[in-house]
Amino acid sequence: VAKRKCPDHGLDLSTYCQEDRQLICVLCPVIGAHQGHQLSTLDEA
């Protein structure tokens, strides 16, 4: 199974943004649109 990539940063989608209910990469909460959002690992989601 191919991993999905972040459209903004090109990295694997490895984190779940609880606020926006979507998968994001590790850079999205650091330099992207998900700064300050509640996050979960994929195992927790």
Rank of each mutant, 00 (worst) to 15 (best):
Q18P: 10
T41N: 13
C6T: 01
L11M: 09
P7D: 03
P7E: 03
A2D: 15
G32Q: 03
V1C: 11
Y16G: 03
K5Q: 05
H37G: 01
C28P: 01
S14K: 13
H9P: 00
L42I: 12
G32F: 01
G10N: 15
Q18N: 12
Y16C: 06
T15A: 07
V30I: 10
D20F: 00
K3T: 11
E44A: 13
C28S: 01
V30T: 15
C28A: 00
C17I: 01
C6V: 00
D8K: 14
Q35G: 05
L23W: 12
C6Q: 01
E19N: 10
C6Y: 00
I24P: 03
D20T: 04
C28I: 00
D8F: 10
Q18H: 14
K5H: 04
A45P: 12
D12R: 04
D20I: 02
A45R: 12
C17V: 01
D12H: 13
V1N: 07
C25R: 01
G36C: 05
G32M: 02
D12K: 07
C28F: 01
D12A: 06
L42K: 14
R21A: 12
V1R: 03
V26T: 15
R21Q: 15
V1K: 12
Q38F: 08
C25W: 00
D8Y: 15
C25T: 02
R4L: 08
A45T: 13
S40E: 11
D8G: 04
T41F: 04
A33C: 09
D20H: 05
Q35C: 07
L23D: 15
A2F: 13
C28V: 00
D12M: 09
G36H: 10
A33P: 09
P7Y: 04
G10D: 12
L11W: 04
Q35V: 10
C17M: 01
L13H: 03
K5I: 04
S14W: 05
H34W: 00
C17A: 02
A2Y: 11
D8T: 15
K3V: 08
H34I: 01
S40H: 13
A33F: 04
Q22I: 07
D20S: 05
S40W: 05
Q35A: 09
L42P: 14
A45L: 07
A33Q: 11
H34N: 02
L11K: 13
D12V: 07
L13I: 05
K5N: 06
C25V: 00
C6F: 02
D8R: 10
S40T: 08
H9V: 00
P7M: 10
I31K: 15
H9G: 00
A2P: 07
E44F: 06
P29S: 13
G32K: 04
T41I: 06
C6H: 00
D12W: 05
L13K: 04
T41E: 13
D43T: 10
G32R: 03
D43M: 08
G10A: 07
I31Y: 08
L23M: 12
H37A: 02
L39D: 11
G36F: 04
Q35R: 07
S40K: 10
S14A: 12
D20P: 00
A2L: 10
L42E: 14
R21N: 14
A33L: 07
